[in-house]
Computed example of a mutant assay.
Amino acid sequence: MTETIFPLESTAAEAQQAIKEEFAFFGDWSERYQYLIDLGRKLPAFPDEWKTEQHRLLGCQSMVWIVPQGDAQRLDFRAISDSAIVSGLIYLALRVYSGRPAAEILATDPDYIADIGLAKHLSPTRSNGLAALLGFIRDTAQNQRG
Results as ranks from 00 to 15, higher is better:
T2C: 12
E3C: 12
T4G: 14
I5M: 11
E9A: 12
E9K: 10
T11D: 13
T11N: 13
A12W: 06
A13S: 14
A13Y: 11
Q16G: 12
Q16D: 04
Q17T: 15
Q17S: 12
A18C: 10
I19R: 09
I19Q: 08
E21R: 14
E21S: 11
F26W: 12
G27P: 04
D28Q: 10
D28A: 01
W29K: 07
W29C: 02
S30M: 03
R32A: 04
Y33D: 00
Y35M: 07
Y35N: 11
D38T: 09
L39W: 04
K42G: 08
K42D: 01
K42F: 02
L43M: 00
A45F: 00
A45N: 12
E49G: 04
W50D: 09
K51V: 02
K51A: 05
T52Y: 10
R56Q: 14
L57G: 01
L57W: 01
L58V: 08
C60P: 09
S62H: 13
S62F: 04
V64K: 14
V64G: 06
W65Y: 15
I66G: 03
V67E: 01
V67N: 02
P68F: 02
Q69V: 13
Q69S: 14
D71P: 13
Q73N: 15
R74C: 15
L75I: 15
F77R: 11
A79M: 05
S81Q: 10
S81I: 14
S81E: 11
D82S: 05
D82A: 00
S83N: 14
S83W: 06
S87Y: 00
S87L: 02
G88C: 06
L89A: 01
A93H: 04
S98M: 10
R100T: 10
R100A: 07
A102V: 03
A102E: 02
E104F: 07
T108S: 08
T108Q: 08
D111S: 11
I113M: 05
I113A: 08
D115C: 04
K120Y: 05
K120G: 02
H121W: 03
T125K: 06
S127P: 03
N128A: 14
L130Q: 03
F136Y: 08
I137E: 03
R138F: 01
A141K: 01
A141C: 10
Q142N: 13
Q142Y: 06
R145C: 11
R145Y: 05
